[in-house]
Design a protein around this nucleic acid. Structure first.
Length: 896
RNA sequence: GGACGUUUAGCUCAGUUGGUUAGAGCGUUGCAUUCACAUUGCAAAGGUCGAAGGUUCGAAUCCUUCAACGUCCACCA
């Protein structure tokens, strides 16, 4: 036990860093160092934060939830690995550094520095970010195994990336093609479909005369090379025209145009006729491919018009629009202009510049092409055989549909399938410098794809880099040693064999497509295993008004600030309690302050228990098995503790963190502190001390995953064990609540509550002793046995308990189901007030009774409802009647 | 245009397979400050569960329609 003064308030700052350092030093974050032989594995990979800066509340909620999962698993005796790492986040990081360099005075950083020097700058920035991120994870208390830390761009992960690329290339899944891509003229790079965002915008929509038809467009600057008119085959207006060729007057003079019929044309849209722009529209490009039309690029990668734009060549595409329209106007080709057209402008998700669809030679992953599946021998996927021809899309659908991967909450499965249905081939090459260089080398017409670099001999590597999600898609396998050390060596199983597939992937729903789906694709392909058995998706953390936290709104709540102010434990609780999976949650400082109050409450519970319960320290391993239930309160609190232990365990197994936390908080505060601790002040005994210590130590274990710091500090104060609470064994309930005990204790609570209520009604000071009479029929003996308890808890000086009796004069009364309570108020009783109060209560009781009898008189109800429901209702009815009678007789006394 | 989510006390949210006076925290109101904790204690007030229909002996819970708010996807003819 503590032989020194424990401070009145818990000060997180005084303990947190030291506790984390001690945990780290123990080595127990690394599963290989866990003390006993552990058979069952539990593994999570940390979704690697981007090295673009610092952690925000979204990361904090992720760390809090995952740490709960991990600490719970570890305490339950599983060989537990939580593997940390960071993501180089190619475009995001490069863009961020470019912005910083520009802010520092550079005009075009890439041009001014060159590839090598520029990458050095990015690397320096990434290293600094990484260090900050690691520090922040530690501040949160995250029990990550830092000895296994990984980085998406380090050498082991680069080998994995090149290996996967080569496998896919050899299987014919990776191909190089001239295809439409989303091009960001500012980043000078392509973007994946889901890296494009849309902003609603009002713009002009032009209708032009194009030969015999009128066509509509919002982007006149792309229309120079339009040579094909498309109409719907069923459109009567244009039936005659289909198949014809003609010369039409256009922007830069006459062009030769022809008319084709295709169902993509929408008869109800505009004039029903359109021309196509194969080089700058995904739909038109597909159409051009289908009919073999020429693809002429009008807008270049610099965002300027190409030579195909004739007299406008070299102008900025967006700026040239007005001049082009003017030229058409002069020729009398403008039919009319819709000034109020709203459409969605596509912009780059990183820099918000307008995105230009254009054709470009790029690397793609074919998601529809069947290949020969390579099954895993140690964790095979059910339903797909070795060598079976199957496409990536089909695998992605299969593993979720067959529930081999379970998504929580389930509704996101729908979103997932919908996304896959719309999935096109994945463009994986980017024209940026920071990232994994495409492992392809060229020499003249020759192409070589290689894991090892090809040096000299005239080989030149592709200048492009890979989409950042290509490397993070390999995260579960690349961090566990694939491909280099995926196999056992010297009889020792490898990390990959032990920990893959990982148990659960915990992340925000906003990266379900970006990352989760890509991991499923890459992992099932590369190793023939699912990457994780479950996906738990948390919601976004928003501000107290429900807005996203952002710099421009200046509403960012910084996790580090909150940890400094309220402690890591309080910050964690505020992020976990009150939220449900997949739903956004609102966070405010007041909320965190509320949980700071709770950590302090727990601290003071411990302070009280440790100062009042003096027992010789138990030797390690002995535990508190000797704890006995002597009094009613002992039986009650131990029974409740058993119930709470079971329910908290069940909640945590189902990832119901909020429910588990609320249950624990209510038990800790409203039952253990408010009732048992108060009772213990009266019923002092060695056994009471044992009960206090037992409940406290069990609570520390149950709370530990949620609030690791304060529980570990108290655990040390208790001196129960030399070992950390972090590796203590998770409690087992070891018993049930006796329903009779529950009923009896509830009666005591109700009696005490009724007396307190009467005191409050008459403004009797809490400290003042009062006189009370309880008339309680067959419960009189029991209540009399508990007289001391009731007197203590309700501050009663004189208590009379009788089986039968009449109300004492000058007293306020309350009626419980089994007892009538009278509080003596000599001279203070307000007859009128008392009469009104009792009348109101009587009314309530009678209304309730009549509702119940109406139900019970209904034969359909009594015949169809389950017997226990009917029985319970009969009991309630007789109680209501009894209560009404008691209230009536009390009113009668008052009237005298 | 398609899909999903939310709507319960002033605020933030729970509410298990439908079961009978709808719960918590914060806030509010009243009383209390040597006695573990004012980062506290005791008590109270406060809700026709978004609307309208339906199923059922019984609906916050299941079905239909509608409304408001939010999110994602598609789309620059």
């Amino acid at each position: 036990m503590a032989d020194h003064e424990i401070p009145k308030a818990y000060d997180p700052k005084a303990h947190e860093d030291a506790v984390y350092a001690a945990w780290e030093q123990s080595g127990f974050f690394n599963p290989d160092n866990l003390p006993d032989e552990r058979k069952e594995m539990f593994s999570i990979v940390l979704p690697p934060p981007n090295v673009t800066g610092t952690l925000h509340m979204g990361h904090a909620v992720m760390l809090a939830i995952e740490d709960i999962m991990v600490r719970f698993a570890r305490m339950r005796g599983k060989k537990t690995l939580w593997l940390p790492g960071t993501d180089h986040a190619a475009i995001a990081t490069q863009t961020k550094v470019e912005k910083l360099l520009i802010a520092g005075g550079m005009k075009d950083p890439r041009a001014e520095l060159g590839r090598g020097a520029f990458l050095e700058r990015v690397k320096t920035f990434a290293t600094e970010s990484h260090d900050v991120i690691v520090k922040q994870c530690k501040k949160m208390g995250a029990s990550l195994d830092w000895s296994r830390e990984a980085y998406t761009l380090d050498s082991a992960r680069s080998t994995a990336v090149r290996t996967a690329f080569k496998m896919m290339y050899d299987d014919g899944l990776i191909y190089r093609g001239d295809r439409m891509v989303n091009w960001c003229p500012r980043c000078k790079s392509t973007l994946a479909d889901d890296e494009v965002e849309y902003i609603e915008q009002k713009t002009k929509f032009y209708y032009f005369k194009y030969g015999p038809v009128v066509i509509g467009t919002a982007r006149p600057e792309t229309k120079f090379a339009d040579k094909v008119i498309v109409v719907h085959p069923n459109d009567a207006r244009y039936k005659e025209l289909v198949g014809k060729e003609m010369e039409v007057e256009w922007i830069d003079g006459l062009v030769k145009a022809k008319v084709v019929a295709d169902e993509v044309a929408d008869m109800d849209m505009g004039s029903g006729a359109m021309t196509i722009t194969p080089a700058h529209s995904f739909v038109d490009f597909d159409l051009a491919k289908k009919y073999g039309f020429e693809v002429v690029q009008i807008i270049g990668e610099d965002g300027k018009l190409t030579n195909a734009a004739g007299s406008f060549a070299g102008q900025d595409a967006h700026d040239a629009r007005t001049a082009i329209v003017e030229q058409l106007q002069k020729k009398g080709l403008v039919d009319h202009v819709d000034e109020n057209y709203t459409h969605n402008l596509s912009v780059c998700y990183r820099c918000e510049s307008p995105v230009e669809p254009l054709p470009k030679l790029q690397w793609f992953i074919d998601v529809n092409k069947p290949f020969a599946f390579r099954a895993s021998s140690h964790a095979p996927i059910d339903g797909i055989n070795d060598g079976q021809m199957i496409s990536l899309k089909e695998i992605m659908q299969h593993v979720v549909r067959s529930k081999q991967i379970e998504i929580i909450p389930e509704r996101f499965e729908k979103t997932y399938f919908h996304w896959i249905d719309n999935l096109r081939d994945w463009n994986i090459s980017r024209q940026i410098w920071f990232g994994h260089r495409v492992p392809v080398w060229y020499r003249g017409e020759e192409i070589s794809v290689s894991v090892e670099a090809l040096e000299g001999d005239g080989w030149e590597q592709d200048p492009d880099t890979l989409d950042t999600w290509f490397s993070s898609g390999l995260w579960t396998i690349s961090t566990l040693g694939w491909p280099s050390s995926a196999k056992a060596s010297e009889g020792k199983p490898s990390d990959f064999e032990q920990f893959h597939p990982t148990s659960v992937l915990e992340t925000g729903y906003d990266i379900l497509f970006f990352w989760v789906a890509r991991m499923i694709l890459m992992t099932t392909y590369a190793v023939g295993e699912i990457p994780f058995k479950q996906v738990y998706l948390h919601g976004l953390v928003r501000d107290e008004k429900g807005r996203k936290m952002s710099k421009s709104l200046d509403n960012i709540i910084d996790p580090l600030d909150m940890i400094g102010k309220f402690g890591a434990d309080a910050t964690r609780l505020s992020l976990v309690i009150g939220g449900t999976p997949g739903n956004d949650s609102k966070l405010s400082e007041e909320k965190i302050a509320g949980y700071r109050n709770f950590t302090n409450k727990l601290w003071n519970i411990a302070r009280f228990v440790l100062s009042s319960a003096h027992l010789p320290p138990l030797t390690q391993g002995e535990g508190w098995g000797g704890v006995c239930a002597v009094t009613l309160a002992d039986r009650w609190i131990l029974g409740r503790l058993a119930e709470v232990t079971d329910r908290v365990t069940a909640h945590l197994e189902r990832y119901e963190f909020s429910a588990a936390g609320e249950l624990l908080r209510d038990f800790t505060w409203s039952e253990f502190a408010d009732w048992y601790l108060e009772i213990s002040k009266l019923q002092k005994s060695e056994n009471t001390d044992r009960v206090l210590l037992h409940v406290l130590s069990t609570l520390l274990k149950l709370w530990h995953p949620f609030m690791p710091f304060v529980t570990e500090v108290i655990w040390k104060e208790m001196g129960l064990s030399k070992d950390f609470l972090m590796i203590a064994e998770w409690p087992k309930s070891g018993g049930n609540m006796d329903p009779r005990v529950a009923g009896e204790f509830t009666l005591v609570q109700d009696v005490v509550g009724a007396i307190r209520n009467l005191r409050s009604q008459y403004n009797v000071e809490p400290a003042k002793m009062v006189s009370v009479t309880i008339v309680s029929g067959k419960r009189a003996t029991f209540i009399d046995e508990q007289a001391e308890l009731i007197k203590h808890l309700a501050r009663v000086g004189s208590l009379t308990v009788t089986a039968n009796g009449t109300a004492p004069v000058q007293s306020a009364s309350a009626v419980l189901g089994e007892a009538s309570i009278f509080l003596s108020l000599a001279g203070l009783l307000d007859l009128e007030k008392e009469r009104m109060r009792l009348t109101k209560e009587l009314q309530g009781a009678q209304d309730y009774a009549s509702t119940l009898s109406a139900k019970l008189d209904n034969a359909e109800f009594t015949s169809k409802a389950p017997a226990n429901v009917v029985k319970k209702m009969r009991t309630n009815l007789s109680e209501a009647h009894e209560r009404s009678r008691a209230l009536q007789s009390q009113l009668a006394v008052l009237k005298k």
